[in-house]
Amino acid sequence: MFVQNTHIIRRQIAGLLHEVADPEIPVVSIVDLGMVLDIRPENGHWRIDLAPTYSGCPAIDVIPFLVKARLEEAGLTDTHIEMEISPPWSTDWISEEGNEKLHAYGIAPPNGKASDQEYEGKPRSCPQCGSTETEMISRYGATPCKASYKCLSCLEPFEYFKCF
């Protein structure tokens, strides 16, 4: 592998990973969610380190498979994907763009830094109407990463991506 090529290939892989959507929330990519930790050449192949979100997230087995498939499609067959649990994934790693996509999709993004607070925070506003008057319905939503809320202004239910 030529040194001058590694930068180009790394950028190519990073670009392809941007196209791998989260299976549970398909509007955001695994890059938006901050799951991609490292991309590097190692022993003649490309190694990609990913951070699993919640331990029990059903997407945990699907994501490496999707990543491998996307890279193979682009002709990158010699890849090795590892799930790294340390340090543990945090919503602080979700990009600004990721948060905007969540909001546009109707999920209130994490409000605040998980590292700053012991609690999961509260949605800044209703993703439907923008009202700040919201109320929690349940600590859990359709997936462990979200809580169920309702808006007291437009009365629509919505999900909040908890600070974690």
Binding site: Y54, S55, G56, C57, P58, I60, S138, R139, Y140, G141, A142, T143, P144
Partner: peptide
């Protein structure tokens, strides 16, 4: 769904 989400966490752990 709260109980089953906790279940998922536990089985993941």
């Amino acid at each position: 769904i709260a109980l089953t989400n906790i279940s998922l966490d536990l089985i993941g752990q």
